[in-house]
Design a protein around this nucleic acid. Structure first.
Lengths: 288, 288
DNA sequence: TTGATTATGAAATAAATATTTCATATGATG
DNA sequence: CATCATATGAAATATTTATTTCATAATCAA
């Protein structure tokens, strides 16, 4: 049997009234039906339980559980297909060329899976916490420093209370008097560095509000996080990709900047004149 | 509790051995578990049915069916999210939610357009130049430092001749005796900082081979570049997105690592023992 | 309209699934 | 190494879910 839904659709013309009601409901609710029991489905559709069972046998199954299994398989199928996406359609000139593009494709699917798993509520909480924070500390080490720097650079444009900490040496003093209004963002991806973990857990212990930016909920940072935010970093190579985490950081920065609490255009104007004074940026037509 | 998975992840540290096995399995198989019965889940994970039931109550549910329902709800939630992503014109719960996803979408299209415009030949030349270089200098300033750091971190794992320069102060001395075998990678995106431009053009003048990592061929870096590599960074916000450039850097690093000229596994083994000696990374089961 | 045929639901029964009990194993503590 | 506390699984029990039975309702042909 190719496809449950297709098979149901085909047989609708030869169904009785009650069966047709069932068939149509199933076709229209493929996300709910796989989880329902005979009783629930019967009640929702407005037929008897017996009719539901007869419907399953009418379709050629030995009973309702078999039909249910097929419906569940279809749902799982859909889940994995939407993850895989139309990755593999393109034809490449040679193997190496293909492989170059594969890296980009992997990054795209990392972003997609990050999007899908994103906990909107946690995201919005993060933005609000940053806006209301007394002081914001970013902690990261090793390769994650690059992410931390990026976050710091843009947060600093908008807020004046941002500090980036990459070494645990002065932590004891710096974190001595933390409180709830201080927000500590810990950034760590496999293989999680001890020093980031140490700084992060210390911050939590000292009473700060902690936000973890990491790869999944099993990360060692999560137990110490008030808010965990996850972004996929998996790559089939020796490096982890920070592309999806960076995209998540982009989203955070953008939303902080979009808040009414930050007058971004005023801030940018100020910076503009400062930059102009210091002659930092290239002007068109000018020579390097 | 907002999210089942989050709640499970939080409680993992306080779980017994068998419960931990269950928790991890559930977190790692969110697409299958919602369909399983107590018996099946117990068998797959390798614990008794009783343990599964106790696990549900441990999490605060009245029994397994309640936990199952929550898991099923999450899956349905995810399904509707992924469906939304597939049909990008969908209506979102509210405007803000839509906008969060838009950032990710923009990053994905930046990667796509980077891929499309990628000059394969220039890319391969870049990889070869890095492999054969006498000395590699990375120059970047301001927000682009984050990209430079990432590139430096991974190149350094593979090669021993990498230096990152972020300030133009000592340039005169450092770049005095450059030659063709020295490779200088300049990273600059709008608004191009003068100091990067200055360092980059100086390097070219002193005879180095120059690679520009920038947003398009009209960038002020390009006239001084032997090889220009471009990656899209456009965003409809006040920040530029470095997501696509980072993906390009990923591709470069991966390809350098894949070359036969670099014995990456040997390098990684060496680093491994060094890291182990210095006790840098978190080990599973260890406390923060 | 009548009688035969088919479809349907309520209730009884069967099967599957979840929970509890109890004996044993594991691990920590003195 | 004995003692206690805790964790675990096998088996018994309870509960839920699926199926079957049977009486009745709807449909259709003559």
């Amino acid at each position: 049997m190719a496809n449950v839904y297709q098979s149901i659709a085909e047989k609708i013309p030869s169904m009785s009234k009650a069966q047709e009601k069932l068939g149509k409901y199933i076709l229209q609710n493929p996300n709910n039906v796989p989880f329902l029991t005979v009783g629930k489905l019967a009640k929702i559709v407005g037929v008897s339980e017996a009719t539901v069972v007869r419907f399953a046998t009418f379709l050629g199954y030995s009973g309702f559980p078999e039909l249910q299994e097929d419906l569940q398989d279809s749902l799982r199928q859909q889940l994995t297909t939407s993850e895989r996406l139309q990755m593999s359609t393109q034809v490449y000139d040679d193997e190496q060329e293909r492989w170059i593009y594969d890296i980009f494709q992997d990054d795209i699917s990392n972003i997609r899976s990050t999007m899908k798993k994103l906990d909107i509520e946690a995201f919005q909480k993060t933005v609000n916490l940053l806006l209301d924070a007394n002081k914001i500390y970013i902690v990261a080490s090793r390769s994650a420093i690059s992410l931390g720097m990026f976050l710091e650079y843009y947060l600093r444009i908008m807020l004046d209370n941002v500090e980036f900490i990459t070494s645990s040496e002065l932590i004891a003093e710096k974190f001595y008097q933390l409180n709830k209004k201080d927000v500590v963002i810990g950034i760590s991806f496999p293989r999680y560095t001890k020093s980031t973990l140490k700084m992060f857990s210390f911050a939590k212990e000292r009473g700060a509000t902690t936000i973890a930016l990491t790869d999944n909920l099993l990360s060692p940072l999560v137990p110490y996080a008030d808010i965990p935010l996850t972004a996929s970093s998996r790559m089939p190579t020796f490096i982890d990709s920070f592309v999806a985490p960076l995209s998540l950081i982009n989203a955070i920065i953008t939303h902080v900047g979009a808040s009414k609490k930050v007058d971004i255009s005023k801030k940018l104007d100020e910076l503009e004149s400062k930059w102009d004074y210091l002659d930092i940026f290239h002007k068109k037509g000018e020579d390097g």
